[in-house]
Nucleic acid binder design. Structure first.
Lengths: 142, 142
DNA sequence: CGGTATCCACTGGGATACTG
DNA sequence: CAGTATCCCAGTGGATACCG
């Protein structure tokens, strides 16, 4: 808050002109917003990241993703399947075997997802520090 | 589903070895998971995207983000501020003026966020098509 | 094994009203 | 203008039980 002058509007850090946010900041029911909500979902993120490596069976996913309930995993997988992100293959064997894998579309997405995860990992400490700083100022009397 | 052979495990589309998902697929309360949940949040995504362009006042954000309630916007901004993603500047003028802008940390994040948005825009049609395909098969008797 | 179905508790989040 | 506080409903999502 060095220069508390509302009129001054120095360009922020990054302002590539090749992309205009105002273009997609559309109505709430907008398709982009819907899709964004789906792929930026807590479990979707994890599922996509795991499937990046190889096909996985339902149980493998369930085991790998700590804290996910069967219902949520099923729901998430169905949505991702519907969106063409993952492919579900059922093997008609006596103990049912179902495998999930990324489609081409899903593969193209995982790169972005991973960037997000990598960013998070890299800046984990910085965020933790910021939080400590913020929380410390919480009860600052003077 | 060409070769329905569970034993076969052809490498998926992309398998860069420079990153191991199993490394971060950790416990539920894990910091990475927490941060991921926060930044992949519906409103956070939009706020960060908007602030990428320039500082914005509270009302400007509220107006730009269709469907957000005052409470959610405040909550989101506070969390982002706590995480060191956005900076909040209060101008002690008679009609209060508060501006929000991305911090350096926030700027480094927005690039990834934008990639996600760009991906969504680019593949919007493909996803819509996948959905139509999926939904059409819903009530397929034979 | 890989689900679906049901129940239900919790909380995210909207609407509204008040404040500095 | 930019919040905070309160109320309260709806949907998220966990737990459990049962099915193909």
């Amino acid at each position: 808050m060095s220069t508390a002058n509302p009129a001054a509007d120095p360009p922020s850090c990054c302002d590539d002109a090749d992309y205009d946010v105002r273009q997609w900041d559309v109505r709430e029911g907008c398709e982009v917003r819907q899709i964004l909500d789906r792929i930026a979902d807590k479990w979707s993120l994890l599922v996509i990241s795991l499937l990046e490596r190889r096909k996985l069976r339902f149980t493998e996913l369930k085991t790998s993703i700590d804290g996910v309930s069967q219902r949520m995993l099923t729901t998430t997988l169905r949505q991702l399947e519907r969106d063409g992100i993952v492919k579900r293959t059922v093997y008609p064997v006596v103990p049912p075997r179902v495998e999930y894998e990324l489609t081409d579309l899903g593969c193209s997405l995982h790169k972005t997802i991973r960037a997000l995860v990598v960013w998070t990992e890299k800046n984990q400490a910085a965020i933790a520090a910021a939080r400590r700083r913020y929380d410390a100022l919480e009860g600052t009397p003077d």
